[in-house]
Write a protein that binds this DNA or RNA. Structure first.
Length: 268
DNA sequence: CGAGCATGGTGAC
DNA sequence: TCACCCTGCTCGA
């Protein structure tokens, strides 16, 4: 679930559900009980996101700083009894939001939030993002571009799905070192993310396949992917590339599964 | 029913 | 580079 679009969507939904309201904050699972009690029955101002970080602002300059990690979920549900391991529940009489399995869940000050954001690269989902900051680092880096776009200090919000898909859509060889990437390729990556990620926020899923490459348009049977979206290469190892038909390749890169098409992706 | 896996990140070596 | 953390789901015995 959680790449940048998930967190931005969550910020919108949480603000809509709780913004300007006094909320109940509890920790059914118990591990966050003390902090929950400190926020309980206070005003929820708004939720914002930067990259994969979520910040819920409460009255008196207090923030709930959440990072979902790989398996975390923060779901809006009816205010009925919780099930499973719920670290935090934020609720009104009408709505509830349950947080499970977060990598990070702490109460923070504004200064701490600012420090966190200062360590993050530009986020394609934020209007104030400056892509030049990312490019300056990428053009000097020796590491493969596939590692650089996932580095949250360089670019924030991109995860394993967006990395695979944006490199495919721009026909870029994922192993190309940053310092050998053309400026044109970088411009392509950034503008593509600026186009794709808001769609991800809107639809709450990642779809990257252009209309002319859908199975229907290509005269192939429709596919069903278990992650919910239509994608070119992510988790399609061994299957036929939707564009050229050659086998999608996979490899472990920096501890994560990388997927790409060796024939389509040759640009630098 | 257990093992393995997942759109992520940290800390130890 | 690796072990490990968090939770829930799927797949094979």
């Amino acid at each position: 679930m959680p790449e940048g679009h998930t967190l931005h969507r969550l910020a919108l939904d949480l603000t809509e559900a709780f913004g300007g309201r006094v909320v109940t904050v509890t920790s059914p699972q118990g591990r966050f009980a003390e902090s929950a009690a400190a926020l309980d029955q206070t005003l929820f101002i708004e939720a914002t996101a930067h990259g994969k970080h979520l910040f819920c602002e409460f009255d008196d300059d207090r923030f709930l700083h959440v990072h979902l990690g790989l398996i975390g979920k923060f779901q809006l549900v009816a205010p009925e009894p919780t099930w499973g391991e719920v670290r935090v529940r934020i609720a009104t009489r009408e709505r509830a939001a349950d947080l499970r399995g977060p990598q990070l869940c702490v109460v923070a000050t504004r200064a701490e939030i600012d420090a966190t954001m200062a360590g993050l690269g530009p986020d394609p989902l934020r209007p104030d993002a400056d892509p030049e900051l990312a490019w300056r680092r990428i053009r000097r880096a020796n590491r493969p571009i596939a590692a650089l776009v996932m580095d949250q200090t360089i670019l924030s919000g991109v995860g394993n799905v967006y990395r695979a898909e944006v490199l495919f859509r721009n026909r870029i060889n994922p192993h190309r070192p940053g310092n050998k990437l053309t400026r044109k390729s970088w411009t392509g990556i950034w503008s593509d993310l600026v186009e794709l990620m808001p769609q991800g926020v809107r639809d709450n899923r990642i779809d990257t396949v252009r209309p002319e490459h859908t199975p229907e348009a290509m005269g192939r049977p429709p596919r069903s992917d278990n992650h919910g979206g239509e994608v070119y290469v992510y988790r399609r190892a061994g299957m036929a590339c939707l564009v050229c038909g050659s086998k999608v390749r996979t490899e472990l890169l920096a501890g994560r599964n990388l997927f790409w098409c060796g024939r389509c992706q040759r640009r630098g």
